[in-house]
Design a binder for these strands. Structure first.
Lengths: 340, 340
DNA sequence: TTGAAAGCGCTACCAG
DNA sequence: CTGGTAGCGCTTTCAA
């Protein structure tokens, strides 16, 4: 930690600290000659402003934090790309915090939101009820928060951008139906997140719409992981009433499902069609390449950042709290007509 | 932003701000009765200390930043798990910054290191030469930096933990050789990182050791991605001199390679053996499940954090700068004897 | 056990 | 165009 700071530079350049500050922040409010002198002094001392002091004094940091449950989540990574690009343009730095929101207490949420470290926060996850409590608390210091995911109904007023999960799940199911499937199961994410709920509802609606039955045992809960998909698939495929198609709540589970099929000697898509959700990069190189639904992750990122930015700037947030972006079916090879 | 702060609490509790500060930081240096009064006031006002002011005053933040080139990198995610666990125990928060180190200028590095936002930095990546310049600059403010990856020779003195990439690559190659392969190619990461170089050298050494030739066209550079692996594999497999085994510098490339084989009608492992590196989770559900080498990512994370922590605390960093952790071959089904 | 007060490094206001 | 200076919210002596 080189001792420091603006005072030294001022001394060396033979000017006041005010002038140093000025040449840093408003170079054209300073005469050319002094500017040069100050810049020399800065170079000589290797001075870098103490950003902590700056932020403290200014009352803001020009930092936004992105909270996600898991570094390594490909969807979040996509959203991040969009956020970063937008942030860079607007002079913001972005820090990500990996937090298992689902497991957090109200107090922890409070702390998360109370830290003045950042000017605003983007969360890429569903907010559990403890978080909802804190976010809807009137007395809470109002750090701007914005969500890149479907939110619980209580947070209907919170700005967010996400796809129409209900519609996407329904579209995916209809794709299966259009191939002639009438025996369709779904593996959905474990948590009671609004996102999961919407997808399950969309699935049910599409089935109902087509006059199809859904036996209880064909709606199975799994962890949102490869292992979760494998376990759920095994349960589904070793029962005596076997579906001809499985719709998975995300690609991880779908990939796990595909793998379990291989182990069981069940061919996809000849014996079983599998549909994913998310279009992670590995979906394209799965065997068979996974048919899935894609979310415009990057776009979600840039949109949500733009909204956060406006809120931070105090501009009125325009229009609906929910900005619904389009999803898209990605047709590859894991869905085909049912056997016979 | 609820107006704020320690002063209000003090007023409400009828004490000085010093006392409020004390009950927050040293509760037992305050009499029970005032403590209770202050705590009430805190609750009533919903006061939360301004962490910016605290950090500014204290001169440190109790934050460490982790820099990685890509959110979504499964290896980095594993390292993060180790870091988080260790950080939590030691009262540190961890922020991650996604930065394409390879593309950064010296100035950008300077800024990265100059920000007093964090007390220290862990980088999960190889440091390019611009970064080396800054890190080895004597005049640089010495933000503690520590590396979770193999480093360039110029940074030999920088604390780091990583596997023996040379040895691991050599082991992987020997596995191929032990299955009877004599025509082995390698697809290595594009960048001239020390890590890539070590792996290529380990590969070469094992070949040489076994008296095997390496034609130039069998050492091919690829981007470190699925697409990179696919392109490189296609080049390798459509030439007229085709290897019977390919060692890939990471699992992404190996998975891309496997996919390209499928497209080309080449069966793995019957026609071609493929070996990966990293053991990402998708390696286990590849078709065929990928034989690869695994790094103890989580362990790397906790070790590197421990070292950073000591440096921040001013304790002498014990022993060698390089802490080499063991790698492990993960035998699955993508490697077998060569055809005939 | 408590309070008064001095700054931490910087920005921004007000004079000159 | 420049300098002097108040003060951001907090911690931490030093006295009482």
């Amino acid at each position: 930690m080189a001792k420091s700071s603006i005072k030294k530079v001022a001394q060396l350049a033979g000017v006041s600290i005010a002038t140093v500050s000025r040449t840093l922040n408003f170079p054209d409010k300073v005469s050319e000659s002094t500017r040069l002198r100050v810049e020399d002094a800065i170079r000589e001392t290797g001075y870098q402003p103490n950003s902590l002091a700056q932020s403290f004094r200014r009352g803001h940091t020009n930092i936004v934090t992105v909270v996600m449950p898991s570094i390594g989540d490909p969807f979040a990574a996509g959203v991040m790309r969009g956020i970063q690009a937008a942030a860079q343009q607007n002079g913001y730095a972005v820090y990500v915090e990996e937090k298992p929101l689902q497991a957090m207490s109200s107090d922890e949420f409070d702390t998360l939101l109370g830290s003045r470290q950042a000017d605003g926060m983007i969360v890429i996850a569903s907010i559990p009820s403890e978080g909802v409590k804190v976010l809807t608390d009137e007395n809470r210091p109002k750090l701007p928060v914005v969500i890149a995911c479907e939110t619980p109904p209580e947070l209907a007023a919170t700005p967010r951008v996400h796809i129409d999960n209900f519609g996407a799940a329904s579209d995916a199911t209809e794709l299966l139906i259009s191939h002639g499937h009438r025996n369709i199961a779904m593996i959905y994410g474990l948590e009671e997140s609004p996102l999961t709920i919407s997808r399950v509802n969309g699935f049910r609606a599409a089935l109902e719409n087509a006059g199809l039955q859904l036996p209880d045992e064909w709606l199975v809960e799994g962890y949102r992981t490869l292992a979760g998909g494998r376990a759920a698939a095994r349960a589904l495929l070793t029962g005596n009433h076997r579906p001809t198609a499985i719709f998975c709540g995300n690609d991880d589970m779908a990939l796990g499902c595909l793998h379990e099929c291989r182990l069981l000697g069940i061919r996809a898509p000849e014996d079983l069609s599998v549909m994913g959700f998310d279009d992670i990069q590995f979906a394209a190189v799965a065997d068979p390449p996974l048919t899935t639904v894609s979310q415009p992750a990057e776009d979600i990122g840039s949109r949500i950042f733009a909204r956060l930015c406006k809120i931070i700037a105090g501009e009125p947030d325009s229009g609906q709290p929910a900005d619904i972006v389009p999803h898209r079916l990605v047709i590859r090879d894991s869905v085909a007509a049912p056997p016979q």
